[in-house]
Amino acid sequence: MASRTTHPVLGTRALNRATLARQMLLERAPVEAGEAVSRLVGLQAQNVRPPYFQLHARLASFRPAGLAAAMEAREVVRMVTLRSTIHTHTAHDALTLRPLVQAARDREVAQFRKGLGGVDLERLTRRVRDYVEDEPRTMAEIRAELLREWPGADPLGLSVAATRRLALVQVTPRGVWGRSGQVRLTTVERWLGAEAVSAAQERPQGVDDLVLRYLGAFGPASVKDMQVWAGTTRLREAFERLRPELAVFRDPEGVELFDLPGAPRPDEDTPAPPRFLPEFDNLLLSHADRSRVVPPRLKGRSWSGNQAHCTLLVDGFLAGLWRLQDGGGLTVELFDTIGAAQKDRVVAEGERLLAGMTERNGAVRFGSIRG
């Protein structure tokens, strides 16, 4: 193995372009919604609309109906996985990825042990499974059912135990573009059916597989980067097992980075067109060191309290915020002045977003979105 000091150094712009290439943000990809969801190892879906906007920024011919149809066909689902947040995943990932992060979800339940004294977690798991597989239930219904058996337990603790012990999906019409629906839950196995479960058992996914897929979507990256993305720990061993198969680099601070040998690493001067990303886009959440996308001086500028803003990339880096207006149109707030030609490209990209995602040709204006 080569000396640790001989690994090539990748600067911030080189890391930026490599990550944007994996994320289909240098050039929109000619793939369908389901393939993109798989390639990106899921889309953060804390809110209903962001997955659609994430794909609009990345796919050449995306229309919201494409992802909506995949959801209604149960080819993709919404469920708690990475970082204990809701993600949109393919059916295969829903069945095979969740077990890989289950230990972290179990630790969340342990944090409520004081409020769950006397609660038999195995019995709780069986009871919730039977209840939601009978028909999809709301969280309020699940909690009320559990309180009937354990009236002295912490209601929040019961809710956490139910949603962390079991892999529960939000059934449609929740999450379907143009429709609304209360959050109702059932098990991933019941929702996807025996055929999908059997297919997942034939093609299981291990930790090493997940490391390779993460690097394919977010690399080059460190062990800590992936741990932040997955919301779990103790991944060093998997990286070490895979080291002989991986390319190894260092960032400007000397942190060791891993990558797939054949993955794209474009020249740092490769043009990066403006892109409008929704709140909670995984591009901004999937590395311990986010300076490859967020300039250090802008750290924290895409958040207000615990609420993320929609973000604008210019030249591949965070450059502003944006918001759709209720009456039509789109407002952009730039952090810094940009050139006239770059501003024209921002307007053109904003008009594309309005035409594709709102079906109306509103105006793109520059101003403040924060009151």
Rank of each mutant, 00 (worst) to 15 (best):
A2H: 07
T5W: 09
P8W: 08
G11K: 05
A14H: 02
A14E: 14
N16I: 01
T19N: 12
L20M: 03
A21G: 01
M24D: 03
M24G: 01
R28V: 03
R28S: 06
R28N: 09
A29I: 05
P30Q: 04
P30H: 06
V31G: 01
A33G: 10
E35F: 08
L40I: 10
A45I: 07
R49T: 13
H56L: 03
A60D: 11
R63F: 00
R63S: 13
M71V: 13
M79G: 03
T81Y: 02
H87I: 05
H89E: 15
T90D: 06
L95E: 10
T96K: 01
A110W: 03
Q111D: 02
V119W: 10
D120E: 11
E122V: 11
Y131I: 00
V132Y: 05
R137G: 09
R137I: 08
A140L: 11
E141I: 09
I142A: 05
A144G: 09
P151H: 09
P151T: 07
A153V: 05
A153E: 03
A153P: 04
P155M: 08
P155Q: 11
S159D: 08
S159P: 00
A161W: 07
L168T: 05
V171I: 10
G175I: 08
R179Y: 07
G181D: 12
Q182D: 15
L185Y: 12
L192E: 11
V197Y: 04
V197T: 11
E202R: 15
R203E: 15
D208L: 12
D208P: 06
D209R: 15
L210W: 13
L215Y: 04
G219E: 04
G219C: 07
S222Q: 08
K224G: 12
M226R: 06
V228R: 14
T233R: 14
L235W: 15
R236L: 13
E237D: 11
A238G: 09
F239C: 00
A247V: 11
F249Y: 15
R250D: 00
R250C: 04
V255M: 04
E256W: 06
F258R: 01
A272D: 02
P273F: 02
P278A: 02
N282W: 00
D289R: 09
D289S: 05
R290V: 12
S291K: 14
R292I: 08
P296N: 13
R297I: 08
L298V: 03
K299M: 08
S302P: 00
W303M: 14
S304D: 11
N306C: 04
Q307C: 03
A308T: 05
C310N: 14
C310A: 15
L312T: 09
W322M: 04
W322C: 03
R323D: 00
G327M: 06
E333A: 05
F335V: 06
K343H: 06
K343F: 00
V346R: 01
R352K: 07
L354F: 15
G356P: 01
S368T: 14
R370M: 02
R370C: 07
R370W: 10
